[in-house]
Nucleic acid binder design. Structure first.
Lengths: 252, 252
DNA sequence: AGAAATTCTTGATGTTGATCAAGTCGTTTT
DNA sequence: AAAACGACTTGATCAACATCAAGAATTTCT
């Protein structure tokens, strides 16, 4: 409100070496010296608000981005107006890897809530990785991991039932929240039912019904975006498919 | 039959610079000098026969492989005995990128017919790429392209109808054969209906019925593995979805 | 605060593609 | 050549999930 500087967070220096996400992010496996050099090329801009685009399909590609807080949805606007949600991204996750191919973003990224990111100019990252073997190695691993995750998703969409898809989805968030030091069983989802359905290849109504069913079966409690997983082991059984859920279900 | 050496293909030196696939493969964008250095680390082994594994999920990762002739299916054996086909690979295509992540193959690769490959020891490739910026750049692009292809596949499996899936599949082969100097409209598929169905998330019976239907509609002629595309533009219309096929169909 | 617009839920109905079952064709084995 | 096997096709039936429709709960707008 007042123009007088009191405490401005803008002046607080953020650095990879102090970042709680370092172990989840690019710096993983680098020496402190290497992290320092990486830190020098990273730009930290203002936060995005819900609905802001980080980039759009077709935009020229400059930087990879690491989410540092908030969450992001990536999607590819497909020919007939609709969209395909490609992923939901949490702090520590790197986005934009698909754009290296031809210097042009092939999909769009939009903030699902107030979101901060680190921008890593790719040409500088590339130069740096040429003189830092550990960074180059880390980059190859990261790109490869992304491929591995995509192929897991292919199996999900190719073979799994609606029930298995939603269980997989919930456990993915559970694991990722846990990794980040949050509760594995009590969290808020920042995306709508519609977006979940789109991502999982299901209709909104199916997602809604499944939430209700899971709740009726005491697998979880859900109220709007707030989810509490009550029986994680049985959710894992559902993910396995083959109705093996029944076998682990305590027979009364 | 005789042990006397007459003409042995084994003695014929193969080199990237003479390879007709160079423009589709890693050497793309490298200077002749760079190709020479890359060539030095590549191993060319004996061909695989139909059904031979190039590697299996869980195997230690040593090398990326480029198909030079024949074709390969990659698949991930999933928990309950079944498998998910991840891709079909033609000459010039690189496989094994998913294994960089943790030095271990996450999926299996099997020859669909007599198949030859170049092996590229990854640790050597990595060292080489650190001193050859153009090779490093090419590697990043390649990995990024793989990610882009996977996300296209996600859209296919998430949103498209059976008809759209098969049309997309056929056109993908059409384009890839064309790129390689073969007919875009007359080719042999090296995989079974079962494998096509698995890849596309469809039952064998559905694939079979669709081939029949496409033939009845004069989109193609098919006899066992031999496919002749008769109306490629209309196949593209089908891929677009939205029944836009009708609009481009010449009204009589 | 009240109205309008979204988002989510729930029910009824419909359609696509899976599953089950049988038969044909082609290839391999003996 | 006959038999056995596997790949493919075709038909009949079924189930899972989409679509359509309406109402409830929230959020946003004015």
């Amino acid at each position: 409100m007042t123009s007088r500087k009191v405490v401005s967070f803008e002046n607080i220096k953020v650095a990879c070496k102090n970042c709680s996400l370092a172990t989840l992010c690019l710096p993983m496996g680098l020496t402190p010296d290497d992290v320092e050099r990486l830190d020098c090329i990273i730009k930290r801009g203002r936060p995005y608000h819900r609905g802001d685009h980080l980039y759009r399909g077709g935009d020229k590609f400059h930087s990879l981005r690491v989410i540092t807080s908030g969450s992001v949805k990536t999607y590819s606007p497909n020919e007939d107006g609709g969209e395909q949600v490609l992923g939901f991204h949490l702090p520590g996750e790197l986005i934009g890897l698909d754009a290296i191919q031809d210097d042009c973003h092939t999909c769009s990224a939009i903030a699902l809530e107030t979101t901060a990111v680190c921008e890593i100019p790719f040409s500088q990252l590339e130069s740096l990785s040429a003189i830092m073997p550990s960074l180059q190695h880390q980059m190859y691993r990261l790109l490869s991991r992304e491929i591995g995750q995509d192929t897991e998703m292919l199996t999900l969409l190719g073979k799994k039932s609606a029930e298995e898809r939603l269980a997989t989805f919930l456990l993915s968030f559970s694991e990722r929240f846990k990794q980040r030091g949050f509760s594995a069983s009590d969290f808020f989802l920042s995306m709508s039912r519609h977006e979940i359905g789109n991502y999982l290849g299901l209709a909104v109504e199916t997602v809604s019904r499944l939430f209700t069913r899971f709740q009726d079966e005491n697998l979880l409690r859900v109220e709007r975006k707030h989810v509490q997983l009550l029986d994680i082991p049985r959710l894992y059984d559902i993910v396995q498919g083959c109705d093996s859920a029944k076998s682990s279900q305590s027979r009364v």
